[in-house]
Amino acid sequence: MKSLYNYAFFDEGSKREIRRASLKAIAIPGYQVPFASREMPIARGWGTGGLQVTLSLIGKSDVLKVIDQGADESVNAVNIKKLVGKTTGVETTEETERATLIQSRHRIPETPLREDQVLVLQVPIPEPLRFVEPSEETTKRLHAEADYSGAYLLLFEQIMRYGRVSTGADHPVEVRDRYVMAPSPIPRFDNPKMDHSSALILLGAGREKKIYAVPPYTRVVSLDFEDHPFEIEDVTGRVCRQCGAVDVYFDELVDEETGETFFQCNDTSYCLARMNAEADR
């Protein structure tokens, strides 16, 4: 394949810089390592952090899967897959089991990941204390001192106001009893999948220029209070209209003709695999 670009888009120096940051990120779980964050051919805020991490990792033998909000075919996932595919020639897949490298926006797949897979998450705001403290210099000091009262304060205010924690996504976690970390805007439903995950999880924030990581088999605890324990979204009684799955994360949709609401797996490849297995039977 004749390409006008270097393999995996980047020059080797850029890859080296991202690689140095990523290795330190794995060595210090949950700590945000600053990196240079290159200009990318897609806009910042559209997954450039995850994309840079993916491009620094990817090689000829990889099989790539890209997910956008649970879907392999939505615009962000398709664009990233095309860019990586055109500059590397690697095979892409929608099947979670077949992928060696999975880049995702806002979901961790329903299918449990393995030790030989790497999950890369796109992160818009990597700083869990940003909403209480706008200064980066100050938040870095708060991390240094492990002063996380601000993160608890945010949750406390939600409880005061609404009687419960109202984080829709990106519910903060504590990694290995030290760093409080933004898990990226995954639903609370996915937070427990980070705890003692079999696969390495790398998180990249392109606009904010940070790379951080959750190594495999690492303790990840969602922040909560004794009298307000952490809870995932309640999915009891919900069934996927397509494949009949229960205990997964759902999209709630409206049937335009009948006005009736129904549920469907948010993870489209998981749903499709279940329907195919049903059809084969």
């Binding site: 270097n6 393999y7 995996a8 080797e12 890859k15 690689r19 990523s22 290795l23 794995i26 060595a27 620094s56 990792l57 990817i58 090689g59 000829k60 790497v118 390495l200 190594p215 495999p216």
Partner: peptide, 16 residues
């Protein structure tokens, strides 16, 4: 390009 990529992945695996 490719040998150093493979080496880096081995280092990631070793660190992880």
């Amino acid at each position: 390009v490719h040998d150093l990529q493979q080496t880096y992945r081995a280092m990631v695996r070793a660190m992880a």
